[in-house]
Design a protein around this nucleic acid. Structure first.
Lengths: 235, 235
DNA sequence: CCGAAGAGTTAGTCATGCCTAAATCTCGGT
DNA sequence: ACCGAGATTTAGGCATGACTAACTCTTCGG
């Protein structure tokens, strides 16, 4: 009996795992856009039917995590945003921890973190963060929210937006596609490396990008997902 | 969609968290005794009402994890025992990992492991085991089942069974009582230390035990829970 | 400005687990 | 052999979260 209460009294009222996942999904779908997020988009992101998402969004609204205008989508409340950032902090700390401390390949840390992010205590979160030296970025270059849940502003642009001749630092790439991560890993293309666009082939052709003296032909999907900062023209 | 399937295809058919907890509880209640375990005992261990346990035990029986004779208790099938050992392996590896690698105090690793044991992948289990050098015991001295789920036989006896004058090696202590662990920790009494029984006070009085040149008066509850191996008489 | 396509919601189920209350079984003692 | 105490199970609910099928709302094209 007492064990159950103690467990549920994690912070104030235990947040269900489902709520955490939805908050995170909505946060990431909102991105920098101000618009409300549609039920269908959330459903697709989570991997459930729109009907399921609709029911869940209503619950989240009841819990004060989102504002829901029926038929017009949801927007996170600040409470919901806090929750999302907490989960994202967990996720990225765990990813980095698995990669750095346990040597798990960076294309596999995502799935593991996706589960564990909901199950670590505040204490373990802090121990992990300390062990890693309060890191600012995860293995894919995504910024890690601070303990106070502040997230570094991101001034990166899509690699696809660069013109031939421009160069910059490879900043980050989505962690959700393991294939893509393996592809980049095999070519030694990691966040932090400098790269320069040699040429852009027309008709949705590949972008020729020079990294460490080697030129790679990167496809359209990839250069949409890769983000670059500190872009400078010419060379 | 694909994400959900991949996640559920953990091994063959995903084992629910509840089943894992019940299997573990039943395993530990069975101990070396051959008798079936009663519904009430399981309920108490898990921290639910007997009604809840009864319903759950029926489900476990349907899933082939236990044999359930209504009104006469349950016994793990070998499948159920495998599941229990798998969870126990996770639990103890995680406890040791938290203590060794992250420096979490040994009186707090239990609660964290209790949650995480259900959520680590086989791959992470193996990475942790490798990092720790395929360890044989957790921080409380409990043996860790091997990857093949073999568990070292335990020839330890309760400290309470020792007579004055006998000595032995403190082998293990239950991880379930954080108070007790803190108490022992403060006195430098850890698994592995040699100890000798100086005297036994009558009328449920304390046992006077010498550890590293210091004599401690240990209460009845404690010496019931502490286990000792390599007992030798006289000195 | 109306009607259909498509997005979103409601209705009705299911599975997992827990609860209380009420029934039922077992077993020891007379 | 029976009775009652105590253990156990059944009955009926609730919460979380997902599904299908059916209904409704919004919006866009003609």
């Amino acid at each position: 009996m007492s064990g159950v209460e103690a467990h549920n009294a994690h912070r104030s009222r235990r947040t269900a795992e489902g709520a955490e996942n939805y908050a995170k999904a909505i946060y990431q779908l909102q991105g920098r856009g101000e618009d409300a997020v549609g039920t269908g988009a959330v459903a697709e992101r989570i991997g459930v039917t729109p009907a399921s998402a609709s029911a869940m969004l209503k619950r989240l609204a009841d819990d004060g995590l989102v504002e829901h205008v029926p038929y017009h989508g949801v927007r996170l409340t600040s409470e919901g945003e806090q929750l999302a950032l907490e989960v994202i902090r967990h996720h990225r700390l765990i990813e980095l921890f698995l990669a750095e401390v346990l040597g798990m390949p960076w294309d596999r840390v995502h799935d593991e973190a996706e589960v564990l992010e909901h199950h670590i205590s505040e204490e373990l979160e802090e121990l992990i963060a300390s062990k890693l030296g309060q890191p600012l970025r995860d293995p894919h270059g995504d910024p890690i929210p601070s303990r106070e849940l502040d997230l570094a502003a991101d001034d990166s642009v899509r690699l696809s937006e660069l013109e031939a001749g421009q160069s910059g630092r490879f900043e980050r790439v989505s962690d959700r596609d393991a294939e893509m991560l393996r592809y980049l890993d095999e070519r030694g293309i990691h966040p932090g490396v400098e790269l320069e666009v040699s040429r852009r082939e027309p008709f949705a052709g590949p972008m020729l990008v020079e990294v460490g003296g080697v030129t790679h032909a990167l496809g359209g999907e990839l250069i949409e997902r890769m983000r670059v900062s500190g872009v400078s023209s010419g060379g």
